[in-house]
Simulated assay, not measured.
Amino acid sequence: MSAPRPTNITLHRASRVLEVAFDTGETFRLPCEYLRVHSPSAEVQGHGPGQRVLQHGKQNVNIVEIAPVGQYGVLLRFDDGHDTGIYSWSVLHDLGKHQAAKWQAYLDELAAAGKARAPQR
């Protein structure tokens, strides 16, 4: 079985949501903040187990550009300057499929670290 492939990707700038429809019939509405804090980049994920860097203060982040990467994914450029990490189709599908659990785990991690979603002034 091949990995799900997107049939449509729409950025809703005003609501800061990336909507991704897949050939499985599933459509996910992924907030830009969610995508940013779960970036597959080494800057966020680290270079090995236990090296992930908790992202915080990203509540108002938006995507400024979506650049295709071959036939397998996209590079999302965010307005906070983050522009590394390729979101493969399987990564986007996984983020959509497990959004509720991943988001709650992120919120729990923020709370445990005493960090906030809102940017520091």
Rank of each mutant, 00 (worst) to 15 (best):
L75N: 00
D79I: 08
G96P: 08
H93D: 03
T84K: 10
F78I: 12
S88E: 11
G25N: 00
S88I: 07
S41T: 08
G70H: 03
L110M: 13
A112C: 15
A113L: 08
S41I: 00
H93R: 05
G50S: 12
V44T: 06
F22A: 02
H82R: 12
D83P: 04
L18D: 00
A113Q: 11
P119W: 03
I66A: 13
A42H: 02
A112W: 14
Q120L: 15
Y106V: 11
V69W: 10
A14T: 15
G25M: 02
D80N: 10
V74K: 10
T7P: 03
P6Y: 01
G96A: 10
A101V: 14
V53F: 05
D79E: 05
V37N: 02
D80S: 04
A111Q: 15
N8M: 04
T27L: 07
D108G: 09
F28T: 05
R117A: 14
L95W: 02
G50E: 09
E65K: 14
C32F: 10
L95S: 06
L75S: 06
Y34P: 09
V61M: 07
P49A: 13
S39T: 08
Q120I: 14
T24Q: 01
A113T: 01
D108V: 01
A42Y: 05
G85W: 11
R121I: 14
I66G: 12
A112N: 15
G81D: 02
R36Q: 13
G25Y: 01
T7R: 11
H82G: 09
P31D: 08
V37M: 04
P68R: 07
H98V: 01
V44K: 04
P68E: 06
A42W: 05
L54F: 00
Q99R: 15
Y34W: 10
S88N: 12
V53N: 12
N8K: 13
R77W: 12
E65N: 14
S90R: 06
H47W: 15
